[in-house]
């Protein structure tokens, strides 16, 4: 059972959502190397995400989750392989076209990445930059209509009271909710979230994930989220993909997936060789088998 679950089965995800003809995200043989090939962050990753799916990525630190997500909105370009998002080859887009695509793809960062000195509302407003033409609207301010929309998004994540508080005076959980509101205000079709709760305490983590997933479901958004909390993932995800050393080792519907199977992804080496060793250190691809093969 365990070993079977760990076999990469790229077809299984799309097969069950087969009704949808054009996937929102389509990744083929994605390879990304750093430091002149000394670090192989992704070693040929292939998968499709149909519209409206909530996909959770799991895997050890250093397994390539961030790198993968950052390919999807073009913050990183592949060494080889294809990345297609909303029908466009992100890896080939440049300048204005890339910005136009990014507008349709929201990104939520582990460290929130808010402008600390600006108010919560202003931070949400920056989500609309892709829609505006000038540096802002009249340089110093945004249109009233936008302010109201932004405020409504803040309200949705439960932070209307903090609209005019400086972002760096908010708690971590509140900051991440501001970042979620910013992404919602961007009106994206796809949301990428890179360990959105990894720097929060367990309680805020649950609250934030709750907000993120429920809001995205309401709006029918396609979500790719990397996450360490397997229990949370199993509760919300439609499908889970597990990465290990830059390769997909698990790709299954979340329904019916057991907690133990999911956690197997976190083992450093193949189950059976050294099962007890559960080291959370980031690894730089300790196995050579992949290179040999």
């Amino acid at each position: 059972m365990t070993t079977e679950a760990l076999q990469p089965s790229p077809g299984s995800g799309t097969a069950s959502g087969g009704a949808d003809p054009a996937p929102v995200v389509r990744v083929r043989d994605l390879v990304r190397e750093f430091d002149d090939g000394r670090v192989k962050a992704l070693r040929g990753v292939t998968f499709d995400v149909p519209s409206g799916e909530l996909l959770v990525l799991i895997g050890l630190s250093g397994s390539g989750k961030s790198t993968l997500l950052r390919h999807i909105n073009g913050l990183v370009t592949p060494t080889s392989g294809e990345v297609e998002v909303l029908g466009q080859r992100v890896d080939q887009l440049k300048g204005g076209d890339l910005r136009a695509l990014r507008r349709r793809v929201g990104f939520i960062f582990q460290q929130f990445h808010l402008v600390g000195r600006a108010t919560a509302l202003e931070n949400v407003l920056t989500g609309a930059l892709g829609r505006l033409r000038g540096p802002r609207y009249g340089v110093l301010t945004y249109p009233n209509r936008m302010r109201r929309e932004a405020f409504e998004q803040l309200d949705r994540v439960g932070l209307a009271d903090q609209a005019f508080q400086r972002a760096d005076t908010l708690s971590g959980g509140q900051q991440q909710r501001v970042a979620i509101a910013r992404t919602l205000f961007q009106q994206p079709e796809v949301v990428l979230a890179d360990e959105p709760v990894a720097s929060l305490d367990p309680e805020s983590s649950h609250a934030v994930m709750e907000v993120l997933f429920s809001v995205c479901q309401e709006d029918g958004l396609t979500v790719l989220c990397s996450l360490h909390q397997v229990d949370l993932a199993l509760g919300w995800a439609d499908r889970m993909i597990g990465l290990r050393a830059g390769e997909i080792v698990l790709d299954q519907r979340a329904k019916g997936l057991s907690d133990a199977d999911a956690r197997n992804v976190y083992r450093r080496v193949d189950p059976g060789t050294a099962p007890a060793e559960d080291d959370a250190e980031p690894t730089h691809a300790p196995q050579t088998s992949a290179e040999a093969g």
Binding site: A100, F107, T126, A128
Partner: peptide
């Protein structure tokens, strides 16, 4: 961080 976040919104 914020620079990257703005870029990610298509700014």
């Amino acid at each position: 961080g914020p620079v990257e976040a703005m870029k990610a919104t298509g700014a």
